[in-house]
Nucleic acid binder design. Sequence first.
DNA 1: GCCTGTGAAGCTATTCACAGCT
DNA 2: AGCTGTGAATAGCTTCACAGGC
Lengths: 206, 206
Amino acid sequence: MTLPHNTIERLFLYRRILQDALADSKRSIFSHELAHISGASSEQVRRDLMLAGAEGNRRLGYDCEKLLTQFSSFFKTDTTTNIAVIGVGNIGKAIVSYFLGKKPHIDVIAIFDNDPTKHGRVIHGTHCYPTSDLEKVLKERVVHVGVIAVPAPFAQDIADKLVQARVPSLLNFAPVRLKVPPPFFVENMDMTLSIEKLGFFAKSQL
Amino acid sequence: MTLPHNTIERLFLYRRILQDALADSKRSIFSHELAHISGASSEQVRRDLMLAGAEGNRRLGYDCEKLLTQFSSFFKTDTTTNIAVIGVGNIGKAIVSYFLGKKPHIDVIAIFDNDPTKHGRVIHGTHCYPTSDLEKVLKERVVHVGVIAVPAPFAQDIADKLVQARVPSLLNFAPVRLKVPPPFFVENMDMTLSIEKLGFFAKSQL
DNA sequence: GCCTGTGAAGCTATTCACAGCT
DNA sequence: AGCTGTGAATAGCTTCACAGGC
């Protein structure tokens, strides 16, 4: 059973909203509430939940706890996601510190850099290895997501190495489009592109 | 003349590729070359360029320089995009240093933070103001894009302030969906969501 | 022969509209 | 009355397929 890509993304968003709701001791939630907080339409929410096999009560909406346990098994979010960060420049460091501690089910298990002065050092609580050890280190540990935070000219090389090391998913911060064979998967976080696009909207809107 | 959102994003990508090509002293480029580097299909590239009003030569493909000047006027990229960064934590600092110097047509003109020890300080070459001065400072300068790098609970409040200050486009790094009235525009860079999604792909692919 | 340009077809995603429940 | 669930309609995006030019 394979859901649309967009639906999957929104489901993770709903999950986050449900967690907040539950923390506010809300028992159940309506599709229009989820819609309002997530920015989707209520029909969209209901369809997404339907596709995920969820069921709501026609008087009370959806039961938060029930929905969350359903998500957990469905999305395997009860197991931790292990990530490795390659490149410990400004962005790499920001990412590592962002994920440390804050998110309990996301674990930065290794970081890599070419700079010899960083090797062996512990940065934000995580050990830093030389990039050349990437394959060796990653074959010892299960890594779900490789985060590429190196300068653009090196990004494809790192992607190749991560594919070699059988890291299934890559999150790429470098402003290039990486080529990986299926079923490996890359998601781009291209800040420059986003800023350029937003700048265009801003300028054309005056 | 309003292009599809996706097309606009790809055009900025093509533009970047064209700049690289020109730097490599390539005179002209084929749609399939742009396709290969950008990850789109060649038909897609041709349609995008067509929508942007570009014309190619049937023997040589598209003239790089001609295309770029066309893009410049079309996308107003000859004028600098001014950005302000709100929140000088790890992510905020990384963003500022990422855009400083590197990208000539993107200019970080102000940064804001609530921490009084940062006020008046110059961080990565840019002056840091207290967040309470946001409206005052931004009304003196044209700011195209506001980058929100504050913790999630404060993000909506900052968004409201940016809307008040007439900043047309927002780039949001906080893991919440912000509400702004049209025609204001928000783009989300939700790293947590991306990692969760990629983790899901990774786990379901084994 | 290999390229561009583009109508038409196909596919994906979202919204409409309403039946059914409680 | 107000909610969910969902077929049907619509809108948006991508690929096909091929005409036309160099």
